[in-house]
Design a protein around this nucleic acid. Structure first.
Lengths: 112, 112
DNA sequence: ATAAATGTTGAGTTGATACTCAACTCCTCA
DNA sequence: TGAGGAGTTGAGTATCAACTCAACATTTAT
């Protein structure tokens, strides 16, 4: 059973020994909001709030971001290209494994 | 100078000889909304409305979708994978040309 | 045991998104 | 010339996203 965004965030935050209040203060939101997010009483925050959270928690953002279903500005910018969309659609149908993703990642590097 | 979403939509609709009223009716929205979109008085519609428009107009959705800056459900589902996000971030930094996109597209096919 | 720190909850707020409705104008063609 | 089809405009609405504030509960340290 897949873990929720809230559970994931709570785990990460606890592992860093930071209180909801401290996290919230650094991120720039109310701590009660963090609480609700962690207990899945509210949907995940906006993409840029997730980014800030990850910066404060010194953790890579990809996992939380992916789990949130939100799209970062960076990724959004990427898909303003029809070629990128077509590519992604095909990748989606192929349902790549992580290994295959990494293979693709390597081929990307060898492109330049 | 890049063409706007509205101009693009107007061109496609006209090329199919469909009135704003007919398009709107098929799509399930008010025709005055279509008018405003076409004249860029309002931002592009929601992603799924764009999809419907493209279905009714029998035109591939990628171009309008990309031009809108919105993200389709299909693409959104794509990026629920951290590997995909990492990949896209790298691609973003590399700022791929369309030619390079197509090269990558070919390498994708040869992956299976 | 109690004070301080930490976490939870309910009820609102604010701003943006995604539209609709009524009232026009313009064009054409019979 | 006037009726019908097509397009435009201003003003308003509904829903939702992304939060905040006040009050209370729970956990922790001493």
């Amino acid at each position: 059973m897949k873990t929720t965004f809230g559970t994931l965030l709570k785990e990460i935050r606890r592992s860093k020994n930071i209180s909801q209040r401290d996290l919230a203060k650094s991120v720039g939101c109310d701590f009660t909001y963090i609480s609700k997010i962690e207990n899945d009483r509210l949907p995940p925050p906006a993409a840029d709030t997730i980014q800030k959270i990850c910066t404060v928690l010194e953790t890579p953002s990809e996992i939380l971001m992916a789990n949130s279903g939100k799209v970062s500005t960076e990724v959004r910018d990427m898909v303003t290209n029809p070629e990128a969309i077509k590519f992604l659609q095909e990748v989606h149908q192929m349902n790549l494994s992580d290994t295959e993703w990494k293979a693709l990642h390597n081929q990307l590097k060898s492109l330049r």
